[in-house]
């Protein structure tokens, strides 16, 4: 996990019911539940929210402004100068596709993100099953190595991987990027899924064994379906992480640049027009934001994955 994506690696103790944003406890926690929240609380929080939203809002507004407008006046002038407001246009979005490689980058992003998200799930789930339900020498040591690797910066692997890929002729191809993400995401995948599986009731396994089911059948028929929530939360994590990754894409993707690399090029050539940069920026964010908003519940559950106690 290089970059800035945060992922909890340490188990947290949290109550189970608080795994979704804004969830309320059944018990009333305020001393006077009928009282409205004090005005100052609403004002301070409102100001914080405003500060959090305004930067993104500025980008969104600019993405609809004509080139000259965007270069010669601040985006906030659309509220003070009516003529600036009426000149808003969708042209930047069509220009982003015709004048830059963002369209192709979008395809590359999909082609990298989908395999990098889906393939590691099954592999990690099998390993997590072994860690949770099987006894074997070296189990604890292996698990501790994996926990340790959660902390290790993935930069340690880049120089040797460049050499290995170079020898295999993989540098600059899409598989080079998604294979790397699978490798780098594996410790977290195993860790999160194992934490969840080890909270599943052991009796289920025992009774399946008595009924004559093999480990393979138990995994397939019982444990994997029971683990869907954690598989989903890992998938969302990995998706956001791979979609937004710049470092590995810069190093391994070559000509097949995904969105962050193309957007970074636009940022570097800002002189040619801010308006393309803003449209491109919004275009890059749209997929992760949709994924995030629609699957927020799983995402939050993933954040607290270590905490789900059986």
């Amino acid at each position: 996990m290089s970059g800035t994506q945060a992922v909890t690696a340490t188990p947290v103790q949290l109550p189970e019911q608080s795994t979704s944003i804004g969830s309320r406890r059944n018990r009333k926690r305020k001393h006077d539940p009928t009282a409205k929240s004090p005005m100052w609380v609403r004002i301070v929080l409102g100001l914080i929210c405003l500060a959090w939203v305004i930067p993104t809002f500025g980008l969104a507004v600019t993405s609809f402004r004509a080139k000259d407008d965007a270069a010669t006046s601040g985006w906030w002038t659309i509220f003070t100068t009516p003529s600036n407001f009426t000149r808003l246009t969708l042209k930047n979005y069509s220009d982003v596709f015709s004048q830059t490689d963002m369209g192709e980058a979008f395809v590359n992003s999909i082609a990298i993100t989908v395999p990098a998200t889906i393939i590691p799930i099954l592999i990690a789930a099998f390993a997590a099953y072994a860690f949770s339900f099987m006894q074997f020498p070296g189990r604890d040591l292996l698990l501790i190595v994996i926990v340790g690797l959660l902390v290790v910066p993935t930069q340690v692997a880049l120089v040797p991987l460049l050499k290995i890929y170079g020898a295999l002729g993989l540098n600059g191809t899409l598989p080079a990027v998604w294979l790397t993400h699978i490798g780098f995401g594996m410790p977290l995948a195993v860790y999160i899924i194992r934490n969840y599986m080890s909270t599943l009731p052991k009796e289920v396994i025992e009774s399946a064994k008595i009924d004559g089911a093999s480990h393979f059948q138990t995994f397939w028929r019982l444990i994997l379906p029971m683990s869907t929530p954690v598989l989903a939360s890992f998938a969302i994590f990995q998706f956001l992480w791979v979609w937004n990754d710049l470092l590995n894409a810069l190093i391994f993707a070559g000509q097949n640049s995904p969105l962050p690399v193309s957007l970074n090029r636009l940022i570097g050539s800002e002189g040619q027009g801010w308006q393309l940069l803003t449209a491109g920026g919004l275009f890059t964010m749209i997929v992760p934001i949709i994924v995030f908003l629609s699957l927020q519940r799983y995402f939050v559950r993933g954040l607290t994955a270590g905490s789900v106690k059986g």
């Binding site: 804004g22 305020k30 609403r42 939203v53 500025g58 980008l59 957007l263």
Partner: peptide, 28 residues
């Protein structure tokens, strides 16, 4: 200390930049 709706809205707004990658954040 807010009501459920205000709490959910404000939390979502503040949580959202997590989905926005660092490069898009750079553009912003």
């Amino acid at each position: 200390r807010l009501g459920p709706r205000g709490e959910k809205l404000s939390k979502t707004l503040i949580f959202l930049p997590m989905a926005i990658g660092a490069v898009s954040a750079g553009a912003i």
